[in-house]
Design a protein around this nucleic acid. Sequence first.
DNA 1: AACCCGGGGAC
DNA 2: GTCCCAGGGTT
Length: 361
Amino acid sequence: MHIAAKNKILNTNELFHWYDKNARDLPWRVSPSNRKSGIQPDPYRVWLSEIMLQQTTVATVKDYYQRFLQKWPTLDALANGSLDDVLKMWAGLGYYSRARNLHACAQQVHADFGGILPNSAADLQKLTGIGPYASAAIAAICFDEKIAVVDGNVERVMARLLALDLPISKAKPQIRLAVQKALGGNQIKRSGDFAQGMMDLGATICTPKRPRCNICPLAKDCRAFASENPEKYPVKLPKKTRPNKFGNAYIVWDKNGAIFLQKRADKGLLAQMSEVPNSEWTDRIQPPDFPFAGQWKSAGTIAHIFTHLKLELTVYVLGETAKHSQLQNAGLTGWWVIPKNLAGEALPTLFKKVIAKAGAK
DNA sequence: AACCCGGGGAC
DNA sequence: GTCCCAGGGTT
């Protein structure tokens, strides 16, 4: 019986050989050669990077990661920081629940585990913001736990290796089992490098468009490569239409040249971030409903695309300086920020666009 | 299982 | 313009 050959999913020796030569050089990563010499990754840094990298490209994350590490070099430092500061540092990166969960997780680990992250995927996944992927990734990369690490890259690589005719959402269990089998059947000790190798392969060779099959170390075992069109895997589902929404935003300056900001709601889109006063977002253009009477002037519109909607805001600027009492009387509570301090605020990109449209005073 | 939740790089 | 990125939480 040739069970080993029959069960073979992919050639791990080929993958390791490729990874040893082609591993991406990333700020949070220990290189394969250093890893072999016994250097271990800092779980705090790996965790921080994994959270930032969720649905976010490496290129976008790098600067945010460095700034976070500079400000909070350890998990305990992050736990002792304020949520407000974390949101300010996260502003512009998107998916802000990650920032709130990151801070909550740091405080959990600080309080319950002395600032030391658990060393198993099972325990890691109990923590806020650490799900099936991140728990497996941290456990594999930091502690070489033999566990399947399945992200979007690995899903695509496996869908092609196996020529899966199911959309990813339906094929996840099969993919997880296949990765687990690839790990288990080959006495893999380098679980972390296996995971990172698979992800690097997906990011640089087995790309969504125009995969570079001609230089792929796994092409020999790839059923998609053997087919006429590898790019058709994984099977794509029809995309949903993105509705258009419209609203108005209101820019107010005081006599000191400071702009009025307020805090968004605790839940929902851009929760707990900062904003300028703005209207409801509706499916039709609406006339402005100014917070109070004054010489309002239109500064034009800005467009912003979210995952599930396209938003167009008309920006109105008050033509004269406002008194703080006018905002208070309008039922608005917030604070005033001079332009040079705006960069330090927890402003999502949407409202940075709005303020830029109004022009600095 | 389906939906909500941002922003940007690459094409 | 489209695609999709080292996903998790909620319902």
